[in-house]
Design a protein around this nucleic acid. Structure first.
Length: 206
DNA sequence: CAAATTTGACCGGT
DNA sequence: ACCGGTCAAATTTG
């Protein structure tokens, strides 16, 4: 439970074609996950050593669309950024228009096993992948009890029956079943045209 | 030279 | 006992 995530609640899961964000991260570990084809990377905010930014993130390549096509990474964000990302200072990283400015859709799913109320809503696009969680966090508050059951995420351990799922977003597999305990905020960023605009140097960095 | 990265080992939890 | 996560040290790159 207490993995020094910076809070323990607030796990944002994003599926993008690039693991690079507007923030600076320092890799502090890499481990192979059982049941996963690719290892998982552990990143921590570089400011943790300067300002105590509890923001952490895990990156793992999705085996759904592996090297065959454009590699997609599963990025799980933990904690919030207390440092000053700014829009001009740390923005020096994104000198190249990696992604964004596309038909990306943002889904926000709130879990609450306490009362059993799950709300799903997605704000309009136009925003970058900045830290705007707290803002939209209160934006969607549904207590009408759409479904008393938490959303089931696609499982893919023993899934030999998958001819071809070219769907942009079909299912995000989460090994950690008990990853979400109480209230959880899941931000789902989808990059539909990510495959089309992917022509950077991400083909073979090393 | 400094910083960031790498790999391994250790620890805690389930 | 196993798996997952983190820390530590060593190394590499800029």
């Amino acid at each position: 439970m207490r993995a020094s995530n910076g809070g323990g609640k607030g796990a944002r899961i994003e599926r993008k074609a690039t693991m690079d964000d507007k923030f600076l991260w320092r890799k502090y570990g890499q481990k192979e996950i059982k049941n996963s084809k690719y290892p998982r990377f552990y990143y921590r905010c570089s400011y943790k050593d300067d300002h105590g930014c509890p923001a952490t993130k895990q990156v793992q390549q999705s085996e759904t669309n592996d090297d065959t096509t454009s590699p997609v990474y599963d990025i799980t964000y933990f904690g919030e950024h207390t440092c000053r990302p700014g829009r001009d200072d740390a923005a020096a990283e994104l000198v190249d228009g990696d992604d964004e400015s596309s038909t990306r859709e943002q889904f926000v799913i709130s879990f609450a096993s306490n009362g059993g109320d799950a709300s799903v809503c997605w704000p309009s696009s136009g925003d970058d992948s900045q830290n705007n969680s707290e803002t939209s966090q209160e934006s969607c508050t549904a207590t009408d009890g759409a479904s008393g059951e938490p959303i089931l995420l696609e499982s893919t351990p023993p899934a030999p029956e998958l001819p071809d799922l070219m769907k942009p977003m079909d299912g995000c597999l989460l090994d950690g079943e008990s990853l979400f305990g109480t209230d959880e905020l899941i931000y789902f960023h989808e990059l539909s045209a990510a495959l089309g605009l992917l022509d950077r140097d991400w083909g073979a960095p090393v």
